[in-house]
């Protein structure tokens, strides 16, 4: 990774660790009843959000889906306000009115999670249209899953983006399962990326658990978009470590051996990155790793404290923000 300095590589590890620990704490909070809304954990897929967002600048836009915490963190969202939103507090990103599936931070170009599968794909295409009209080289990146690639907006949006050469990067996180149905039963082609051929755009398959591979694929797609050459479809093959949601009675039809295999250190994106950095002379000492882990845990603890200290929204606020003045 010649473009990425050792510092940058360590930052990427720290972001991935932050996402993992955030999700672990959110799951814990859900089980403890502190967080009463649904939580879809991104654990296991961290390399995709971090690898892609490492290629973006502040002016670039992203959109997310129901499994959106990782995308927010990778784009630079504030952990305190994220956690406060999950706790349903007034200082949350959405003042406690959005919850996990609607966290947005328009100031950093995070146009929101979206609770409707495929709902964000056309919106991010519109951000691409706006970027093209602005003509200042910004790009728009849409994150969605394998399931969304079967839905109409996937086709409608990519068809338009390809025709109009919009600066959009479509990132399909293929975690291989819908809630309980294998993606292979729903996607008739071997790869989601194969569908790119139908729009005459590049379809790139990448190991979604290798953050540097994701980074390289995204960097090429972003460069292509900035150059006005149009969109790219990236399929990042990955796996979710957790069931679809953190509900205690959430059924999980995935074979236990399959899940266990993906949790092993040679597949889990975080141990893989640690091993890689440690194998490179001087990139990451044991002490640096321990300090990083402690710092991340402190960030999460601070976010939880912030959330708990924040008041619940006032009842009067329920009627605010329906219409803009």
């Amino acid at each position: 990774m010649s473009q990425l300095t050792p510092d940058r590589q360590r930052q990427m590890l720290r972001q991935m660790l932050t996402i993992r620990r955030f999700e672990e704490r959110a799951s814990e909070g859900f089980r403890a009843g502190e967080i009463y809304g649904v939580v879809h954990a991104y654990s296991g897929e961290e390399a995709v959000a971090v690898g892609v967002c490492a290629t973006l600048t502040d002016r670039d836009k992203i959109i997310s889906n129901h499994r959106g915490h990782g995308h927010c963190i990778a784009k630079g969202a504030d952990l305190d306000r994220m956690m406060a939103e999950l706790f349903g507090r007034a200082d949350g990103y959405c003042k406690g009115k959005g919850g996990s599936m609607h966290i947005a931070d328009f100031k950093i170009g995070m146009l929101g999670a979206n609770g409707i599968v495929a709902g964000g794909i056309s919106i991010i295409t519109g951000a691409g249209l706006a970027a093209q009209m602005d003509g200042e080289g910004a790009v728009a990146v849409g994150f969605f899953g394998d399931g969304a690639s079967n839905a109409g907006p996937f086709h409608e949006s990519i068809n338009i983006a390809a025709g109009w050469k919009l600066p959009v990067v479509y990132v399909c996180e293929n975690n291989q399962w819908a809630v309980n149905v294998p993606a292979a039963e729903s996607v008739p082609t071997p790869n989601v990326a194969d569908r790119a051929a139908g729009y005459g755009i590049p379809g790139v398959i990448v190991d979604g658990n290798d953050v540097f591979a994701v980074y390289e694929a995204a960097a090429a797609a972003v460069a292509r978009a900035r150059a006005g050459e149009g969109p790219t479809l990236i399929e990042a093959k990955t796996y979710r470590h957790r069931p679809h949601t953190e509900r205690i009675d959430q059924p999980d039809a995935r074979p236990k051996e399959e899940v266990a295999r993906w949790l092993e250190p040679d597949r889990d994106p975080i141990p893989r990155l640690i091993a890689r950095l440690q194998a490179q002379q001087g990139q990451l000492s044991d002490q640096e790793l321990a300090e990083m882990e402690a710092a991340v845990q402190a960030d999460i603890a601070r976010a939880v404290a912030f959330a708990k200290a924040s008041p619940f929204p006032t009842l009067a606020s329920a009627l605010d923000d329906v219409f803009a003045a």
Binding site: S122, T125, G126, A127, L129, A130, G152, E156, S157, I160
Partner: peptide
């Protein structure tokens, strides 16, 4: 598709 694109442009 184009409705969502309009919404994204408005965002």
């Amino acid at each position: 598709g184009f409705t969502g694109i309009g919404v994204g442009a408005a965002f």
